[in-house]
Amino acid sequence: MDKILDPRLQRLTLINEPLPAKPELDQLPTFEVFVKSRAARPWRHEGSLHASTLEMAFVFAKEQYSRRGTCLGIWVIATHDLFVTDYADNQTDIYDQFTEAPGCSGEAWEVFHMYKRGTQHTHAGQVSAPTPQAALACARNALERPRPVLNAWVGAAGKFRKSTPEEEAMWQTTPEKLFREAIDYKTNEKIKAFKATQS
């Protein structure tokens, strides 16, 4: 091996031999993250992550999914706590599968819609119902949908870790971290001055 150039690595002991096969992989549960970036925008699914607990997932979500720009808060839920519908065929509405409207009371559920393939799920609203399927049947009439819904997710409101109003302060300085933004690295003047010295 050539000389190690990274001083951080010079202080550690690297492992040159393949590791023995693991009896079991360190497989952590997965979580889904929703972000509200502006007041006028709905909560939007931003992606997934691995974590141990819901609280740890919340801690991780903040820096992986909201470390730039403005953010008003995040919601996190375990993937296995989300009920996921099939994907409807084009032009049909997934709500066609949820017509049996039972009593719309009971637990509170957050409902998310995907309107077009390739896009992110966004929050449609909250309904009360006894089960996730029932929640969709209730959402069918209770929640607005500008066009047919291709796929829906439903999660019990109580299963989310939602940021609190006091926690909003954690994002207060995020927009000011300009060292993470392209806009903070302007080169025009420097290049212009350089060219002037060349000619």
Binding site: D26, T30, T53, A78
Partner: peptide
């Protein structure tokens, strides 16, 4: 990182892995 991952795995409320929705 192995001991860290093993340790927090113990804290996982639901140890069954589900494919993320990404």
């Amino acid at each position: 990182g192995e001991w860290v991952r093993r340790a927090i795995l113990v804290k996982a409320s639901n140890k069954k892995y589900v494919t993320p929705l990404a």
